[in-house]
Design a protein around this nucleic acid. Structure first.
Lengths: 322, 322
DNA sequence: TCCCTTATTGTCAGATCGAATATAATCGGA
DNA sequence: TCCGATTATATTCGATCTGACAATAAGGGA
């Protein structure tokens, strides 16, 4: 659908030469007990992906096809993340554009039919600084903080130094600022800019700290993963998407642990209960769980009716600030 | 970046044949006084767009180029909206995919260098049912309501009828439900599905009501516009993007009118003031406005510092519920 | 039975939000 | 110049929401 108000006709000629290769790429998320996981292939450094071809009915179905073929895992909920235009890729014979359309998908591990080369990897292997469930990880953040300050000090003028310091402080919550779990992407991009992640330092350039900078991924996959994490952390606050990650029935504590795993921070139990219940997101099944010590917990199921009733209105899960 | 875990090599062959044409398309928004406007070309039925070609450094710069060329209007703030894969377009000689990457852009009308064939058109010419600043528009909604109920009744079984009724009621706030201004896209899609907008009824099919179904646009441009409206209505609540639409200095009432124009609903004046001030989004210039009757209003400017300080944290403009 | 663990319910103060009211400043006309 | 119309700005009040903490309930094991 190309409309020209004015301009020359030579564009018409250019169009033929400017076709692009379109890739679909998936951030598939599941949570088991307390770890948020992403589906990977290869050496746990590649996100499932493949080209969008004519056979595909739609972008979504193309994505489902590739993920299922590469990992044997059928997808449920999916949503578009972002579209990147990768730098002119080296097309052997001629210049060509590569477009990557990324998606976020939510499932449960069990749905996997024990297939081949796919693996589930914890988010926090790639982003060790993102898990604040036991407080801010001290070792990791101390190292990163030092390296970030060095990076800031290396800037040209004083204004730039201050700007870098402030950016780092906001993103990572330095100087008794509040940690904001939604800034995952900004944090990764900051570390990239400061060459503190492997992907940024062409090779062993400035040798970033080992266990603190996280596991690297191919190309820009880790950045896409960060985009997915950020999106999901934001979305669980106003849409009932967590339930895509839950078993058909669950206890409220399991639900809470799942949210906490995604958010990377702990919640207040009574308050969590209150909000889930007063929003009527769940209903009791009547059963109780076989639990591990302590009083048995009631089992709940998601009230699918809310999807119709409130249709995307307001469904906020409260994330504690403490 | 195409990674295969397994699968045949024949994909490699397919890739060459499966290149796609990529289009960039822009929803450019400005507000003057009290009307939210979108930048159009043609008979006010086309959004600025053009192919993404090799000359473009990036998607964003490509978009800026096309908009500036077609409308003479430079863009400031832009953000990606959504990527569509249009149904296999009729490529004359061979099958080909068409990908549309849509963007939302915010500017001010004055920045236009009085250029050629472009025009600003009120949102509400395309979506007359979306403007609730003087209450729900009675004529429009009454007609739509009747037509939607007819559509619901035309469904096969009773379950489907009820489901359609409920969807319509939620989207449009029937039966003393609350009007949710963010559901612009759902409402348009519902009307499309019910064939109450011109784009859906192939030609003069079911002749939708004239002034109530709004001005039509080419292809799926009106749907993209609806996506932009919905995104912006959502975003102004948690990011200080309104200021992209304001002059360098403004009164608080002007700011409020702008937000109201976008949201399509009225706000409570003291409360609006309170939130803007307590979030320190603005600072006084010291001047007062030459106004139209009544006490002169202080002039404010946006505190650009908040962009650094809070970096995308929480900046909610309160939209009244009444 | 006591104690430990976890579930579930309840309370309370502070922050927030919506609505309404009160005061201030300017203009235009009597 | 005084008055009222108009708009800006400031303040108050009550309802609701939120976060933090405390209290009670129900099971298992020693």
């Amino acid at each position: 659908m190309h409309h020209q108000a004015k301009g020359t006709r030579k564009d018409r000629v250019a169009i033929k030469a400017d076709e692009a290769k379109v890739d679909l790429i998936a951030v598939v998320v599941a949570v088991n007990d307390i770890e948020p996981c992403v589906l990977t292939i290869g050496q746990a450094d590649i996100l499932p992906s493949g080209p969008f071809v004519l056979e595909h009915r739609s972008l979504q179905s193309g994505l489902r096809g590739w993920v299922e073929q590469q990992t044997g895992h059928p997808l449920g909920y999916i949503e578009q993340l972002y579209t990147f235009a990768d730098r002119d890729r080296i097309g052997a014979e001629r210049q060509q554009r590569a477009i990557s359309i990324s998606y976020l998908a939510l499932t449960r591990k069990e749905q996997a039919s024990g297939s081949s080369k796919c693996g589930w990897q914890s988010w926090y292997d790639y982003f060790p600084w993102e898990d604040h469930r036991s407080g801010a990880p001290p070792v990791v953040l101390d190292v990163l903080r030092r390296r970030l300050m060095e990076w800031a000090d290396a800037a040209g003028d004083a204004a730039k130094r201050r700007e870098r310091q402030q950016r780092a402080a906001i993103a990572f919550g330095f100087d008794d600022r509040r940690w904001n779990e939604e800034l995952t992407l900004q944090r990764y991009e900051l570390l990239y800019e400061a060459r503190l992640v492997e992907e940024a330092s062409g090779g062993q350039d400035e040798a970033p700290p080992a266990a603190v900078s996280g596991k690297a991924m191919v190309a820009d996959h880790r950045r896409i993963l960060a985009t997915g994490v950020a999106r999901l952390r934001s979305k669980i606050k106003y849409r009932p998407v967590v339930f895509e990650l839950m078993r058909p029935t669950f206890t409220l504590l399991q639900l809470q642990r799942t949210v906490e795993a995604l958010a990377g921070r702990l919640l207040n139990k009574p308050n969590f209960r209150r909000l889930v219940e007063q929003q009527e997101l769940v209903e009791e099944t009547g059963d109780t769980s076989v639990d591990t010590g302590g009083r048995p917990a009631k089992l709940y199921r998601f009230r699918h009716a809310v999807l119709d009733e409130r249709a995307i209105a307001g469904t906020k899960l409260p994330l504690a600030r403490a």
